[in-house]
Write a protein that binds this DNA or RNA. Structure first.
Length: 581
RNA sequence: CGGGGAGUAGCUCAGCUUGGCCAGAGCGCUGCGUUCGGGACGCAGAGGUCGCAGGUUCAAAUCCUGUCUCCCCGACCA
């Protein structure tokens, strides 16, 4: 490709609305432009990168035996109502009504559609296992798109769905995908961490997340130093805190007047206590049921763990009228005492159960209660009371006695065992060898294509631009003629032709009247791993220069052998990243 | 959805407090010339309904009201 025949609008200035490196550099390198919040147009260089990523994904998926299909991006709302996910997904699900009044959704993922397909077409165990995938645009009406393409409304995702006859077979399908994912991310040049994950709204029994450690990531990875465990924050288990020694003869509970002091912070300020002395009481709704979650004041509730503790039901914070009805007080003054009878379930975090004494809301507007002893002043056991881990791990927590460490990461892929959640609801059944009708056992497997690009830039860039792995760079080689004169342009053209003939992906910066400095900067900004500089200085001695984007020094090679040298360099860079081929 | 910030030339921004001068700068863009190995320089030029709609005023980019969009923090989120 010639620079003058393509369209790569690089810019010097940092765009005002780009906060993180990957976003800024993707705009500056002319890879993409924003259309609206969370939606981007990919320009030729950016689209080339995405296509190269998709090629790698496609290659590994095909090798793993998965079959590529394409499902509609507009799907009937009715199908989502059958699985209840129209409710679970909530506002994130993009919807519209067509001219006939039919409800439609914009595909955020495709479990319903693919299961519906299986329900119609899979009848026999002889057709299983099967794994179907697609790579295309997905839409989620995010509350708050941010960080460029890391959380956008429209994005490209590879989503695969496996169907198996039994658990053993599902395990095998899952492991095959797990292995394919390792090879995909490796080939894309990403250092990644695999963490145990919660399954969220998508449902199911087991899941791993593939995460690229990076300070700008939205996910929190929790791990033990010895590497024996890694989880995302939603899943990270926490050892129960040791029971605190109760001071002798804690006085009876005492109500204290705390006018207009509702938040934990305000109460601490008012009563001169610390958040860890507080007991926080949160009221949740799960359909018609009301659930009380009790955690220590300095802890955060983990909605995934809470969802698990209520058997996977969809939960949300109760609305104000419900809270007022249950606590008989304004919002901000809830406490666990006396609530047991009024609600369906009380869940108490072990850290609260371990407290010797604490302060809670009084279930009375403008009042809190001191000297509250868990177990004495409110029950820790009972038919609708459970002590269970429902909070996020924090610094200082342990698992199996080992300290938990924290670091941020970008989620680039996730694999799930779904089981029969969708096949039950959508009737995806088959006859086994004995003639018994059984639901298909499903797995689903996603990869964020755009996130692979963004995370590659996040973890590898300098002040000049991205330093891209050769497997996903828009071009493998850029030829930069530095200076004018036919001798230079002829030599550059000559190398360009030779490389193109050998199917090296090469970009020739043939822009006339552009100073060398500008060309060098654009080459760096594009992150192209190998640069060939053809200039007067070296050419006088019969040489050109080869420079790696990742290194600061160039080396001189004879013009005559330049193409061969470049090919050898490209191959050695590729060899590092290619797994088993 | 709560809190904060911002919309003025293609981009980055100044001007607004205290209404009135011709609506400005840098970058980019067009032409000519000089340069030519790390974002050169000179000269000449094109380019703006000051987000939108009302209002106040002799007069509004500037003051008031409404509205839309974008960004950040939070909440939320496969």
């Amino acid at each position: 490709m010639r620079f003058t025949k393509t369209f790569i609008p690089t810019v010097k200035e940092v765009p005002a609305d780009a906060e993180i490196a990957s976003h800024q550099l993707m705009i500056r390198a002319g890879l993409m432009r924003k259309l609206a919040s969370g939606t981007y147009t990919y320009l030729p260089a950016g689209w080339r990168i995405l296509q190269k990523i998709m090629d790698i994904v496609r290659d590994e998926m095909n090798k793993a035996g998965a079959l590529e299909i394409s499902m509609p991006m507009v799907q009937p709302l009715e199908l989502w109502q059958k699985t209840g996910r129209d409710v679970d997904y909530g506002e994130t699900l993009g919807r519209f009504t067509d001219r006939h009044g039919r409800g439609n959704v914009l595909m955020p993922t495709a479990e319903e559609v693919v299961t519906c397909l299986a329900a119609g077409e899979i009848n026999s165990y002889k057709q299983l296992p099967i794994n179907l995938y697609q790579i295309n645009a997905k839409y989620r009406d995010e509350f708050r798109p941010r960080f460029g393409v890391l959380r956008s409304r429209e994005f490209i995702m590879k989503d695969a769905y496996s169907f198996d006859v039994d658990d053993e077979s599902l395990d095998k399908s899952y492991r095959i995908m797990y292995g394919a994912y390792c090879r995909i991310f490796r080939r894309c040049g990403l250092e990644y961490v695999i963490v145990e994950a919660e399954t969220g709204e998508i449902g199911g029994s087991g899941s791993h997340q593939f995460t690229v450690p990076c300070d700008n990531g939205e996910d929190v990875i929790v791990y033990t130093e010895d590497g024996s465990g890694a989880w995302n924050l939603e899943k990270a288990p926490v050892d129960p805190a040791p029971k605190q020694q109760a001071p002798k003869n804690v006085p009876d509970t005492e109500e204290v007047h705390t006018p207009n002091v509702g938040s934990i912070e305000a109460v601490c300020d008012f009563l001169k206590c610390k958040p860890q002395d507080m007991i926080k009481t949160l009221i949740y709704s799960a359909g018609p049921d009301t659930i009380v979650a009790v955690i220590r004041g300095d802890h955060d509730l983990n909605t995934e763990k809470l969802t698990g503790a209520v058997g996977g039901k969809h939960i949300e914070l109760a609305d104000e009228p419900t809270i007022e009805k249950v606590t008989a007080a304004a919002v901000g003054f809830a406490g666990p005492m006396g609530l047991t009878e009024k609600v369906n379930l009380v869940l108490i975090d072990p850290a609260v159960a371990a407290m010797a004494v604490g302060i809670t809301g009084a279930n009375k507007t403008d009042y809190h209660v001191k000297n509250v002893v868990p177990g004495r002043d409110f029950a820790l056991e009972g038919k609708n009371i459970k002590v269970v881990d429902i909070r996020n791990a924090v610094e200082g927590d342990t698992h199996d006695g080992k300290p938990l460490l924290f670091r941020r990461g970008i989620e680039v892929g996730q694999v799930f065992k779904l089981g029969t959640k969708y096949s039950d609801k959508l009737d995806a059944k088959f006859l086994d060898a004995e003639g018994n009708e059984k639901p298909c056992l499903m797995g689903c497997y996603g990869i964020g294509i755009n996130r692979i690009l963004a995370s590659a830039i996040e973890i590898s860039h300098d002040d000049k631009g991205p330093i891209l792995p050769i497997t996903i760079a828009p071009w493998e080689v850029i030829i930069t003629p530095a200076g004018t004169g036919t001798e230079i342009t002829d030599a550059a053209e000559n190398i360009y032709t030779q490389l193109a003939e050998k199917e090296i992906e090469v970009l020739l910066d043939d822009r006339p009247d552009i100073r060398a400095g500008v060309k060098f900067n654009d080459a760096d900004l594009l992150g192209i791993p190998v640069r060939v500089t053809v200039g007067q200085k070296s050419l006088a001695a019969g040489n050109v220069e080869i420079k790696l984007r990742s290194e600061s020094e160039s080396r001189k090679v004879a013009l005559a052998s330049a193409a061969d040298e470049v090919i050898a360099t490209v191959n050695s860079l590729k060899a590092v990243l290619n797994v088993g081929n």
